[in-house]
Simulated scan of single mutants.
Amino acid sequence: MKVGIKYCGGCNSRFERTTIAEKIKSDYKNFEISYAKENEEYDFIIVINGCHIACAGLHDLKSKKGFIIIRDDDYKNIRARIDKIL
């Protein structure tokens, strides 16, 4: 499964976005995970935002199954949302 990762601007220094991405990569080793690129199609895209503003732009991102928008670091909830899209 081809999965894109998109990050917000990172203005919230208390929220470590890359830690979540590393957990996802570790737990879903069968996924082909890379930074989401414009005009490239993914099975789904995980958008990691550090706050409720959710500033990560989604324009020009293509996804077959949609987007998982993350605004907190509740990893149990994140896994449940990934498993639901599968």
Rank of each mutant, 00 (worst) to 15 (best):
M1W: 08
M1L: 09
K2R: 15
K2C: 10
V3S: 00
V3P: 12
V3R: 01
G4L: 09
G4W: 06
I5L: 12
K6A: 09
K6V: 11
C8V: 08
C8P: 03
C8D: 03
G10H: 06
G10A: 07
N12E: 10
N12H: 07
S13G: 14
S13Q: 06
R14N: 14
R17G: 03
R17C: 02
R17N: 08
T18V: 01
I20H: 10
E22R: 15
K23L: 13
I24W: 07
K25W: 11
S26D: 14
F31Q: 11
Y35C: 03
A36C: 07
E38N: 14
E41I: 11
Y42W: 06
Y42K: 05
I48P: 04
I48E: 04
G50W: 00
C51M: 11
H52V: 13
H52I: 14
I53L: 13
A54K: 15
C55Q: 12
A56N: 08
L58H: 11
L58D: 07
L58V: 11
L58I: 12
D60N: 15
K65V: 06
G66K: 05
I68N: 07
I69L: 09
R71T: 14
D74T: 02
Y75T: 07
Y75C: 02
N77Y: 03
I82T: 08
I85E: 02
I85Q: 11
